[in-house]
Design a protein around this nucleic acid. Structure first.
Lengths: 333, 333
DNA sequence: TTGAAAGCGGTACCAT
DNA sequence: ATGGTACCGCTTTCAA
């Protein structure tokens, strides 16, 4: 069933049908309702490809993340998808993995499919070498980066200040007289580097010389993480607090401590559901996806509507206190 | 840049360009490479909408789940997306929520976008009343259901035997002389009903009369779950084992037990990463997504290639033993 | 208010 | 091996 057949059935031209489809006012109420009833009767749906061909858009937005099976990306994707939908766009999803070639391939795929815009989730899309693929993509389609930062024209970033939040964590720990703070991390994406740098700066600002950083194998399971951290704890028995770059790592650290009969203050990152599931429950930095994602989508929609928008928006983070570490703000002894 | 311009630049017809694009052998090697070089030089990409219009396909597969921010759906989506990609298809993602109207709207959206097939993840897509929307969708496009079962022509289901796995769990618990088994659940989708029914059948088969089932508010956070289960444990202090319909609920139950100083055998469901994160780590039923998803995609691709495929594939589950419950298979005292 | 017809950018049939 | 051209289903300009 196509527009011509519907036109014939209604005894009007295809133009009129098109006008009805697109809510063009230049159709009498009578004709309009008649056409609508026929369309309903025959369950007619305009061909999206044909519309796409002319309008040069199928109202699709490409979302790329490295791995949707990571709760952080899942949450972001979930929030973005729901926002996008509100504005009448659909989401095409790609999970790229961490391989640069695959990221490029996915980007190309989205461009080939002529998406209206591209949203990259996470700083994994900023390579530490060059970012030509993103530069190229941005020339053809707006690119939004969630919690990542690349300064390229046509690329818009909405992120939280991860470095600063880690600096604050160090400060909070030192306020409780912790001077041997272990930092557990794995992947050194831009974000990973920011956090690591926050750790180092934090130590420096607090006058601490000794860094105890533990690098965990990327993609390690909980037992591998536990073992790695346990080894580190044996190596640095003076450790009196632990921070991790992600909740999952923090939980591995938690298990390591349990194994060694330790119970040090512990701060995770992402405030994921893992943090709630942990026993004791995990104090964690909330990276504000709940605010960032809607803001990013709003920015994108404004952009698509031709408005002027900022190229960079940075939010502060928030420490969610649970059982593994509490600040004593009101230290009324 | 379109096919005509490229044709002009190459001094050949659009037909030839098209042939090169589609790897049609009827082009000399010389022409082909020349065309290819020009295409590369001008960074030409055939318009996907135009191709879609003619071929009536953009090689897109629609994936629907209720909530990608649930690790179960996230894992399934991740596995499906990666399999689909291998076969040269892209994924368009929709998160519908649990509202029937929204599910219908999403289904319509996918059909409007003329996806090549639709994959529904989870039994939440089977309504307990009627399923006309799925019936209608299946008439226009193949529908695959992951871990859900609806017997409708054009709908293909790949699932695991959840009911049976719960029956087995009851049996394993009774073998350890547990007779007061609490069952914690929330949403009663088809899957939820299957599991609940497995619990009841299991009890019956083991000659247990007393059912202790606890219904938790849908969407409850970990504290609400803990409170609900704690109340139930106070009401039924004779409880000597707990099963849950999902890992997250099991963890809530775990926290309730901790609160009350209890330490009963506990079995979760889904074998999600939550199970690893729990302390003590959670014994859980693996619902075999790792096998189901590739099988489902394979079935789909076969279907799209016109092969005959089964309408229903059922896999057995597997109990992953961790700390909260271990079977004593080799009970050599 | 309505309609005829020219595209949008490809593909595929039928010639050559 | 290559090309001319009708056509996919819709939108939009221009004319009536």
């Amino acid at each position: 069933m196509n527009i011509k057949e519907i036109a014939a059935l209604c005894d009007v031209s295809t133009t009129t049908i098109s006008r009805v489809i697109n809510n063009d006012p230049r159709v009498t109420q009578k004709t309009r309702s008649h056409v609508k009833s026929i369309m309903k009767k025959y369950n007619y749906t305009p061909n999206a490809f044909a519309r796409g061909l002319i309008l040069n858009s199928m109202r699709m937005i490409g979302i790329l993340c490295t791995n949707i099976d990571d709760p952080y990306y899942a949450k972001a994707t979930s929030l973005i998808e729901s926002e996008i939908k509100k504005h009448g766009y659909n989401s095409i999803l790609g999970c790229t993995g961490n391989n640069l070639e695959d990221k490029i391939k996915h980007l190309d795929l989205l461009l080939k499919n002529r998406v209206d815009a591209i949203i990259l989730i996470g700083s994994a899309f900023r390579e530490n070498t060059e970012n030509d693929h993103i530069r190229t993509a941005a020339k053809q389609s707006p690119v939004i980066i969630i919690n990542g930062l690349i300064e390229i024209p046509g690329v818009y970033c909405v992120l939280c200040d991860e470095k600063e939040s880690i600096i604050q964590n160090v400060r909070l720990l030192t306020e409780q007289n912790k001077r041997n703070i272990m930092y557990v991390y794995d992947v050194l994406t831009y974000s990973g580097l920011q956090k690591l740098s926050g750790y180092r700066i934090g130590l420096e600002l607090c006058g601490i010389k000794k860094e105890i950083s533990v690098s965990v194998k990327i993609g390690a399971d909980i037992n591998e993480i536990r073992n790695t951290v346990a080894d580190a704890l044996k190596l640095f028995p003076e450790t009196d607090a632990i921070m991790a770059s992600e909740d999952f790592l923090a939980i591995g650290a938690q298990k390591a401590m349990a194994e060694l009969g330790k119970n040090l203050p512990l701060i995770g990152f992402d405030n994921s559901r893992y943090a709630q599931c942990a026993t004791p429950s995990l104090t964690s930095v909330d990276n504000m996806l709940d605010s960032i994602c809607p803001i990013a989508v709003k920015l994108l929609i404004d952009l698509l509507n031709g408005k002027k928008v900022p190229s960079k928006i940075i939010m502060p983070t928030e420490l969610i206190e649970r059982e593994t570490f509490v600040t004593k703000k009101s230290s009324t002894v």
